[in-house]
Design a protein around this nucleic acid. Structure first.
Length: 486
RNA sequence: GGCGACAUAGCCAAGUGGUAAGGCAGGGGUCUGCAAAACCCUUAUCCCCGGUUCGAAUCCGGGUGUCGCCUCCA
């Protein structure tokens, strides 16, 4: 059974099969870097990162491209207000976005093209569309002749007759039809722009994506992503331009849109003003918990934002991390004891194996996959942490190893990295040096001695002080354990 | 007004016609000097009304509500 995806174009679930065998080409509409990103922008970043990781796991070669729209009215406006060159503004916020993605564990794209880098190609496509009769020049603007393109409206489920009355407010007398959209916009000489066959100007909003897809991925790609808000007109127009220009259908085989992130029932959006800075959230919360939160709803469902939801994700993530930590220590300690009967653990492994991949196969159902991970966490914990652990036999240890490997694999596909994996001895972020490790051990030993002597005041004092330094002490039946806290 | 999506426990959220996953919170218990971590038990007939079916949270029709798009927007 292969992967099934929900395609906006057909409004159905479809068996996924790349156009070119073994190679998946993906383009996702990126941000317009005129200001800092908000938490909503992180949703597609993380979702598509999981898609990439899963396709790689499945053995596909994946080429992933996402753009920055660095020429746009709002950036230009900001540039005029601040006197800072528009390229500098765009670069600053693009950088900021990539930094945030890094923190969230998002793999870098194969290319991050900027609209300003593909001006010659844009001009070329616009010229081609004019030659083919799909576009016309008008006072330095160039418009796409929408009614010439037969399939217009197929993606958004609109037809031209319905659109006509809605678009009655004719903004520009330069267009043949109110439905026509700009491919190239004339600009004043003091505005940012480029020399073109139609004079000084800049590209329209939709054309850059068509050009970048063609340049970096080809005339026909497998997956195109973006928010549902972009279905019309942005993606509808992309299809029209691209297919009219290349003559190749389909421009995109699977249209994969994600729903918005809402704040108190409303789309988080700069124009509404209900935005929460992504950078700020990543500074005040564990990025991995944020990632878990972002994956906690299916991509086609609205995700509600609240501090409480983020906190609940943080607690859930904590449980996963603690489990990985406990299992790591269990496997490193030859004397660690587990349950003598590993039946439950074996069942847990089987269940997770089945359900995690089934969920991922069915339209990248990350909430379902996360549920499978939690089930496995419970199975592992029951075996190694529960009271009544009595044996350290080889078979049981082997099963813990299997469960551990599966857990790490699932987390890897979801892009969730527990801290312990980067703090294990030998890795460069290993906690502290040998001396401080020894000092820590001395303190723990002293505290244990105090506990034995029923001097709980001293014992609690040591635990309290160590917790401020980030070390969490836990007394278990097999001795005191030290965890690295947050 | 037109087009589209969604409606599942206190909150969040899976569910591909076969009899309701998972997380957080709450309650009860085990372990324990306390704490922490962990484990076990416990909390729903799926917005409403009809229909199809042996069987529907899942399919169809009609309501109601929420959100998105039709203007820049992940």
């Amino acid at each position: 059974m292969g992967i099934v995806v929900y395609n906006t174009l057909s409004r159905q679930y479809e068996e996924f099969e790349p156009i070119e065998e073994g190679h998946v080409k993906i383009y996702v509409c990126g941000i317009t870097p005129y200001d800092s990103s908000h938490i909503g922008h992180a949703r597609p970043g993380v979702f598509w990162d999981v898609v990439r990781r899963y396709l790689l796991y499945k053995g596909y070669k994946v080429t992933f491209v996402t753009n920055f729209t660095d020429i746009e009215d709002k950036i230009i406006k900001r540039s005029q207000e601040t006197g800072i060159p528009f390229m500098e503004i765009a670069e600053k916020y693009s950088r900021e976005y990539i930094d945030a993605m890094d923190k969230l564990g998002v793999k870098r794209a194969d290319a991050y093209p900027r609209a300003s880098e593909v001006i010659p190609e844009i001009i070329e496509m616009v010229e081609g569309l004019i030659e083919k009769g799909y576009a016309y020049e008008s006072s330095g603007d160039v418009y796409f002749r929408t009614e010439r393109f037969q399939d217009y409206g197929a993606l958004s489920g609109k037809n031209l007759d319905e659109l006509m009355p809605g678009a009655r407010v004719q903004v520009s007398g330069l267009k043949e039809s109110s439905l026509d959209f700009a491919l190239w916009k004339a600009a004043d000489k003091d505005e940012p722009g480029w020399e073109s066959p139609w004079g000084w100007g800049r590209p329209g909003w939709h054309i850059e994506c068509s050009v970048m897809v063609l340049k970096f991925l080809g005339p026909s790609i497998d997956m195109h992503g973006g928010g549902t808000e972009l279905i019309f007109p942005h993606h509808e127009n992309e299809i029209a331009q691209s297919e009219a220009f290349t003559g190749v259908k389909p421009y995109v085989k699977y249209w994969i849109h994600h729903e918005m992130l809402n704040l108190s029932g409303e789309k988080m959006s700069k124009s509404i003003g209900n935005v929460l800075s992504l950078t700020h959230i990543l500074e005040t919360h564990d990025p991995m918990a944020v990632r878990l939160y972002l994956l906690s709803a299916h991509r086609r469902k609205i995700l509600e934002y609240s501090e409480e939801l983020l906190q609940s994700a943080e607690k859930g993530w904590n449980r996963i991390e603690t489990c990985v930590e406990n299992a790591t220590k269990f496997l490193l300690d030859p004397d660690a004891q587990g349950l003598s009967d590993p039946t439950m653990l074996i069942e847990g492994i089987g269940k997770c194996e089945k359900e995690f991949f089934q969920a991922m196969d069915y339209d990248f159902n990350t909430p379902g996959a996360i549920a499978a991970v939690f089930d496995l966490v419970t199975a592992i914990n029951s075996h190694i942490v529960t009271t009544g652990a009595t044996t350290s036999d080889e078979f049981g240890r082997q099963k813990v190893g299997e469960a551990y490997a599966l857990l790490i694999q699932c987390l890897g596909i979801l892009g969730l990295t527990p801290r312990i994996l980067s703090t294990l001895p030998g890795t460069r972020e290993a906690q502290g040096d040998d001396v401080s490790q020894d000092l820590l051990k001395i303190l723990v030993d002293m505290r244990d001695a105090a506990r034995k002597a029923k001097d709980f005041e001293t014992a609690d004092y040591i635990r309290e002080r160590l917790s401020h330094l980030g070390f969490v002490l836990e007394d278990t039946s097999s001795g005191t354990k030290v965890r690295i806290g947050k």
